[in-house]
Each structure stands twice: as C-alpha cells, then as structure tokens.
C-alpha cells in the first residue's frame, strides 16, 4: 500500500487536457515524514509509519514527542501503512511528487456527521405513500419475523447516528499534481469537511 497524509482544501473546477470542465477536490499534501518502520524480523509484519502537519513540542505529551526525537518536529497525524511498496527509510520527506506516476487513487477520510437520522436517509429505505389514505410514511417497516425467532437480529438496519465514520472513496482519477502549490487534484468528491485530514492511497483496484 502506498499512501500519504493530506488535507482536504475544498472543491473547484478545472479544464482538463481535452478542454472539459472537470469537478475536482483539492488536497494539500505537505511534507510527510517517515517516522518509523516495522519489519518482519522485528515486528512480524512490515509497515511504514508516516507523520504529517507540524505541532509545537509543548502541545504534545512527552511520550508522544519521544517517537519523533531526532527525526523531526512532532507531527499532528501519525498513520501506519501496511506493506509500503516504495523504498524509503526513516527521516525521508515525501511530498506531492509522490503521486506523479499514479493515475488513480483511493481517498480515505471521516465523513461529515449527520446526527440521528431515520432509516430512509441512513439506509436508503423506500418509505410509503404520502397520501391516498396511506398511514405509512417514513417508518422502518418490519424488523424481524414472528414467534420464531421472536427477536430482532443484531445488525438490523434502523434509525440512528449517521456519518462521522471512516469512509473510503475508490478509484478517483488524478487530474493534476501541482508541486509549487503542494497540491493534488482528484476528480470528484472526497469524504469529510474541508480542512479535514484525508489519507490518499494508490488505487487498490486499478
């Protein structure tokens, strides 16, 4: 898995190489630092720990700051990437140019919280008729069977808290990599509000 930590800046539109106006999400990727490496000999699996966004040393606990020690300033976000396919070592700084040769990416983020929502919005239930004597409007409908099993199964789709969960959008096309602005542009929307942290990974299925 190849990936870096970025910040969702927002959405806009750009003209692509064919002159077609394309909706894009702008993701800012500032210097990501390789903070640690896990190896099969030592840890039983291989991975790469990447940190991004500087924080002041006084704002973090000593044990947290201890991870960075001589490598760099403490970072706000730390993400462990399993089986990092690029050849990197501790202390390496990775930037947007990392995505130069990558055509498609998966973007992972925390979706916007929607609060307590009904089953129609949360699970795309259909709902009933509004008029013509209908007494069933936006309810759930049945949640189980009868005397056997005489209980509702776990995991039945019902109303509840929606959003604010880890969400991955797959196969977003990379429209542009701008090294001056340290910005990556991908076609389409990305989960979460603007200014939130996202993880941009090389597409798994492309």
């Amino acid at each position: 898995m190849l990936g870096l930590i970025g910040k969702k800046v927002g959405m806009t539109q750009v003209f692509d190489e064919r002159g077609i106006l394309t909706p894009v999400t702008v993701i800012k990727i500032e210097s990501n630092v390789v903070v640690a490496e896990r190896t099969i000999d030592k840890n039983g699996y291989s991975s790469c720990v990447i940190g991004a966004v500087d924080v002041k040393k006084k704002h973090v606990t000593k044990p947290y700051a201890g991870q960075f020690k001589e490598i760099c300033d403490p970072k706000k976000h730390l993400v462990e990437m399993r089986d990092f396919e690029a050849d990197v070592s501790i202390g390496d700084v990775l930037g947007v140019d990392f995505f130069k040769d990558i055509a498609f990416v998966d973007v992972e983020g925390t979706s916007k919280g929607k609060g307590f929502q009904g089953a129609i919005k949360r699970h795309n239930f259909s709902g009933g008729r509004a008029t013509h004597g209908s007494k069933f409007h936006r309810g759930l409908g049945g949640t189980g069977m009868a005397a056997s099993p005489s209980r509702t199964f776990k995991g039945t789709k019902m109303a509840g808290r929606m959003g604010n969960a880890k969400t991955t959008i797959q196969n977003l096309r990379v429209v542009k990599v701008d090294e001056d602005k340290k910005v990556l542009m991908v076609k389409g929307a990305v989960p979460g509000p603007s200014q939130s942290m996202v993880i941009v990974k090389k597409a798994k299925k492309k």
Binding site: M11, F15, V26
Partner: peptide, 12 residues
C-alpha cells in the same frame, strides 16, 4: 481558500 482561488485564477 487561497489555494483554490489561485487554481481558478490560473485558468482564467
């Protein structure tokens, strides 16, 4: 928002 403005301005 500055980044987005700059990107848009580039294309105008």
């Amino acid at each position: 928002m500055d980044v987005i403005k700059a990107i848009e301005l580039e294309q105008q």
